[in-house]
Amino acid sequence: MVSDGLLTAAGTAVYETGAIAERNTTYEVAEYAPGFVLIGDDSGGRGFLVRAGDAATAVFSSDLGDLDPADFQVEAADLAGWLDSVLAQDD
C-alpha cells in the first residue's frame, strides 16, 4: 500500500508529507525536541515522533504540550512496525 498520510478509524493520523513541516513548526519541535520529527498524532493531544536522519529509529509518543525527549515513550522499535500496528487498528 502506498499512501501520503492517513487517518485511521481509531483517530491515529500519519501526516501527509506536505503537512509535516507545518506541524513541526506549530508544535516547535526543533526547539523542544531537537533531532526529532513529528510524524503524526492520536487526535487526542499525543504526538508520534522519530529521530531525524535515523532510518532505523524507534517511534516515540509524547503529549504535544510536553515535548521533552526525557518524557517520550517508545511505541514501536521501528517505523514499519508502528505503521503495521496503526493499520491494524482498523481491522
Results as ranks from 00 to 15, higher is better:
D91N: 15
E22A: 14
T57E: 06
D71T: 15
L38I: 05
G47N: 01
D78L: 02
P69R: 02
D68S: 09
D4A: 07
G81I: 07
G45F: 03
T26A: 15
I39A: 06
G81V: 09
A88V: 04
M1Y: 14
D78A: 06
F48V: 06
D66N: 13
F72T: 08
L38Q: 02
R51C: 10
A76D: 08
R51W: 06
D91G: 12
A9T: 11
Y27S: 04
V50H: 00
F48S: 03
D66W: 03
G45P: 04
G53Y: 11
A21F: 10
E75L: 03
F72G: 05
A88F: 00
A10P: 08
Q89C: 06
G18Q: 11
E31P: 02
I39N: 00
E75Y: 13
A13P: 03
D90A: 14
A55T: 13
F60Y: 12
Y27M: 11
Y32N: 12
D68L: 05
F60K: 00
A13R: 12
S61W: 11
L79D: 04
R46G: 06
G5I: 05
D41R: 01
G18W: 08
L67Q: 04
V29D: 02
D66A: 08
E16L: 12
D66G: 04
G5V: 02
N24K: 06
V37L: 14
D66V: 06
A52D: 10
G5Y: 05
D78Q: 08
A80I: 13
E22W: 12
G47D: 04
T8F: 13
A56N: 13
A80M: 07
E22D: 15
L83S: 04
E75F: 10
F72H: 05
D66Q: 12
G11V: 07
V2L: 09
G65N: 14
A56G: 09
T25E: 14
V29R: 00
F36Y: 12
Y27T: 01
T25Y: 14
R23E: 12
Y32S: 11
L6Y: 13
Y27P: 01
Q89W: 01
E28P: 08
A76I: 09
E22N: 13
R51D: 10
